[in-house]
Amino acid sequence: MATVTSDNRGLRLAARYLSLVLVSLIFLFPLVFMVVSSLKPDHQLLADTSSIRAFLPVGDISLDNYVNAFERAPIGRFMLNSVFVTVVTVTASIALCSLAAFSFVFLEWTGRNVLLSVIVATLIIPFETIAVPLLLFVSKLPWIGLEGLEIGWLNTYRVQIIPWMVDALTVFLFVQFFKDLPRELIEAARVEGASWMLIYRKIVMPLSGPVIATAAILKSLVMYNNQYLWPLIVVQDEAHRPVMVGLGYFFQLQIAWGEVMAYLTLISVPVIAFYLVLQRAFISSIASTGVKG
C-alpha cells in the first residue's frame, strides 16, 4: 500500500540529511582548513589558500610541522597546565554556582534579590577592565601552603583557578534552568522534613544533568581557550603557562603558519574530546529526566 508514502519518507529523510550536511560544511570549513594546513609546508599552505586545495590534503603532506612544533615549545607542559586549571576550575564552578543558584531560586531570604541583581550585573564587566586592579590585589594576597605562609599568588596554579571559580554566567545559567524545575517536588520533600542540603544533593542536582553539562562545556571553553591576558600578567614562568600564552611562541617575525596550524590542531583535541564525553552524559541525563513537567 505504501510505496508512495515510503518513497516520500525516503525523500524527506534524504532532504533532512542533505540540509544537515550543507549546514555542516559552513561550520566545518575553517577547521578542515586548519587540520589540512597543519600537514603542509608553509609555501604550499599559503599558495593553496586561494583555491579548493586549501581543504584537501594534497601535495607535499607530512607531519613535519608537528615535529617542529614540539621542538619549538613545551606543548605537553602547556596542555597539561591548561587541562589541570580547567578541570579544577570547572568542577569548583559547578559546585559553587549551582549551590548559589539553588539558594536564589528555591529559598527565600532577606537580600536575595539584591544579591542576584549584583551578580547578574557583574556579567557586564569585561575582564580587560579589571585585570590591573586584580593583578595588584593577587600579588599581595597571602596563602598558607605546605611551606607555611607566603605572600603573593603570582606564578602559581591557584592564581589561574580561584579568581575564575565563580562567574555570573554560570550562576545565571543554573538560575534559569532551576526555574523550570517543578517546585512541588521540592516543597513535598520539605514537608517530609528533608534538609535543604539533602534536597540540593538528592533531588535538584540529579535532575540537572543537561544544565551541568552545558555549564561545564561553556566554562571549560572559557578556561581553556580564552585564558590569555590573565596568565600573561600573573604567570612569569614557563612551568605554569597555559596553551593560549604558548601560542605566542609560534608568532615570530616570519610566522611559521604550518606549525601554528599544527599547534592549534593539537590544543583543540582535549576540548573536543571533553565535549564528546559530556555530550554523552548530556543525552543520557535527558532521558532520565522524563519526570519533569
Binding site: 549551590l99 548559589a100 539553588f102 527565600e108 537580600g111 536575595r112 540540593y200
Partner: peptide, 8 residues
C-alpha cells in the same frame, strides 16, 4: 539561603 549563596 545565605549559607548556600555565600561561598559563591
Amino acid at each position: 539561603g545565605w549559607l548556600f549563596a555565600l561561598p559563591g
